[in-house]
Nucleic acid binder design. Sequence first.
RNA 1: GCGCCCGUAGCUCAGUCGGAUAGAGCAUCUGCCUUCUAAGCAGACGGCCACAGGUUCGAAUCCUGUCGGGCGCACCA
Length: 551
Amino acid sequence: MRATAILRELLASALENQGIAWPVKTTIEPPRDKAHGDLATNVAMMASKAAKKPPRELAESLRQALAADPRLASVEVAGPGFLNVAFTPAFWQETVCDVAKAGDGYGLLDIGQGVKIQVEFVSANPTGPLHIGHGRGAAVGDSLARVLRAAGFTVETEYYINDAGRQMRILGMSILYRYKELLGEPVTEPEDYYRGDYVIPLAQDMLDAHGRKLLEMPEAEATDICRLHGEREILAGIKKDLEDFRVHHDVWFPESTLLAAGAVDAAFNELRDKKLAYDQDGAFWFASTAFGDDKDRVLVKSGGELTYFASDIAYHADKFRRGFDVVVDIWGADHHGYVPRMKACVSALGRDPEASLKVILVQLVNLLKGGEQIAMSTRAGKFETLADVVAEVGADSARFMFLSRKSDSHLDFDLDAVKEKSMDNPVYYVQYAHARVRSLFAKAEERGLAVAETSPELLALLTTDEDLELLKLLEQYPDTVAAAARTFSPHLISFFLRDLAGRLHRYYTVNPVLTAGSDDLASARLRLLDAVAQTIKNGLDLLGVSAPDKM
RNA sequence: GCGCCCGUAGCUCAGUCGGAUAGAGCAUCUGCCUUCUAAGCAGACGGCCACAGGUUCGAAUCCUGUCGGGCGCACCA
């Protein structure tokens, strides 16, 4: 990040001297081929038209303008007009000081400028325990929040509790049905109910608390009692599962509070005033086609019941009222058809949907055991729930696995592979790199090695290829955080970490540290590796994965 | 039928705003432990970036079409 920023500044001022503005589409990035230096830029090609000069000629003039900078080792014009820039070893060696100085804060940025972002995720109906698919959404949402926070956004995480709709009534009914069953009452199995085993203990609770009394009251009242109990218990279970998975929500927002506060009616009135909603066929409609949706959507059914979407409009209005500049919704990919109407909703609220609403779709998870797919539907086996999977493989493995793919691609979650301590399970590879460094420090202490303080002279001893590769990678960590935040892609962090861990393992094999030959060289290498471990730890923290000192 | 996502090595996947000779792991094969953790390292093998056109100095990346896979098209959530 330092290198990119410096180069950009140098180039921009060189261009300015020629009266040329910074071209928007300029890239400055590490070239694929190391022979092309540390950073390559296409700026001359991009600015060629404005400069009224052929790219190579402009590049040559920029080269001369940069050549004097002491931080640069070389500047070359290549190919159709690329500028290839290499920095001096001393420049890279400073990175160790940067990391040491920042410590846990290495990689914290201010690109967010305090912009307020809300990340809403999981938000599963409290009608049953979380399953593995929710787990992926949970990992992505929680990690994204950490990344955005690190990038300098003001972030609040939220769980929306759908506690008001039909599904909750069905939960109450399901519990009541099981309750009657426990009492040996003659019952017929309802057509549509939650048949999971987790309902039975809830019914038993009802039996313990109320005896046969629920039979003597009106059915609706009994259902309500069951619903309230079920919701409370299931929600408590969800909270515990998420906690065990190291997933945190700042706010738990019940749908019912929207209704109680009249927020839904207020939203309806706003839409009606704007002529964006109307009555037809006994129902109340939102004119979402005005904003590009395929068809208008019903808000109030002709039976008088609200649709899910109705409270969702009120909910998003409430989010913006609370002052969020950007609202992130994380949904299962099977809800993608919902995106246009949600964008329409944001437009209707007078917001630019592209700027203020970011919907992240999380693809389904294929759970595999022994290479066989485990069905994820109602009749799934033991490993269906998130809690079971976390108990089985551990939060670290599960989180890293979920975060090692783009969220919108399908994920094979192989229980056997995730438990293995091998490269099929990259979390160990990364954690092991951290542990290796920490154990070197433990060993250094054991051997009474006094690790010298960092100084330019000491760090000047870091001259091998492996030294420089590690240094350059460390310097890229803040860029990676920036990219992950900008593209809402926490998986970039896990790819970076695998890369960094790989370099560390190679370094470890090739360059002896404690037995380097001199205390100074040993110290310099330890300082470098300390910076590596710190960076790995910071990165793992963004993923919500632990960085053990020993393995 | 309409819409969205996807198609990159045998497998699982990266690939940023269009950049130079296409990347990693797994699998397979070959080497490396009397020395700081072998949960590791090095090397080899492996490609029509689904296909066909187009845009331009330059395309895995952008546009159009075709084929293949997933998902969605409710007064369900």
